[in-house]
Amino acid sequence: MHDEVSSAVQEMMSCLCQSTDSDFCGMACVSGSMLRWKYTSGATNERVKRMAMRPGQDLVGTALRTGRTVMLDEQSSEGYTPDRCPLMLAERLVCAIAVPMFSEGSLPSGVLLVGSRTPCTFSPEMVVQTEQVARQLEQYA
């Protein structure tokens, strides 16, 4: 059963990567006070799966804290920088969309992150598509 779930999640994330022309897609889940990357697609190393981060002031932490989609691309002016996020540093991502995921209640239980290693601008359609996939993946968070 777990392998079926894992392959279904991996398939959804791979498809999201392809349809958004992204290099990386990752799903992180809150475990206690830490955030761990449970599923990834397009990771360049296995270090990411072992990462445990405290949600901070970066893109991922802001999405968790606010419960809203946060974006860093060539058009955004929120002041986020890739070097503030350990995952973005490890995967050399320069642009990303972070979508909070809710399993039960009003507090986010995880984050879906889609990122690119080359500068880009995410279209509104890409953001909506990422949010839709996040809703589908919430049951696995």
Rank of each mutant, 00 (worst) to 15 (best):
M1A: 13
H2W: 15
E4N: 14
S7R: 15
Q10T: 12
M13N: 10
L16Q: 05
C17P: 08
C25I: 05
C25A: 12
M27S: 09
A28H: 07
C29M: 13
V30M: 13
V30A: 05
S31G: 07
M34N: 09
M34H: 12
R36S: 11
W37L: 02
W37M: 07
T40W: 04
G42M: 00
G42A: 00
G42I: 00
A43M: 07
T44Q: 14
R50V: 06
R54F: 08
R54H: 14
P55K: 03
Q57Y: 11
Q57F: 09
D58Q: 07
V60N: 04
T62Y: 00
T62L: 01
L64D: 02
L64R: 03
L64V: 02
R65S: 15
T66W: 07
G67Q: 07
G67I: 00
R68G: 06
R68C: 08
T69G: 06
V70E: 15
D73T: 04
D73N: 06
S76F: 05
S77M: 15
E78M: 14
E78L: 14
G79E: 13
Y80R: 12
Y80P: 08
P82Y: 09
P86W: 06
L93P: 05
V94A: 08
I97E: 10
A98T: 04
V99R: 01
P100N: 01
P100V: 01
S103C: 13
E104A: 12
G105S: 00
L107R: 14
P108A: 13
L112A: 05
L112T: 03
S116R: 13
S116P: 07
T118P: 02
T118R: 14
C120L: 14
S123F: 00
P124H: 05
M126Y: 04
M126L: 03
V128S: 11
V128L: 15
Q129G: 05
E131T: 08
Q132F: 07
V133S: 02
V133G: 02
A134G: 07
A134H: 04
Q136L: 13
Q136W: 03
Q136N: 09
L137S: 03
E138Y: 01
Y140M: 01
A141N: 05
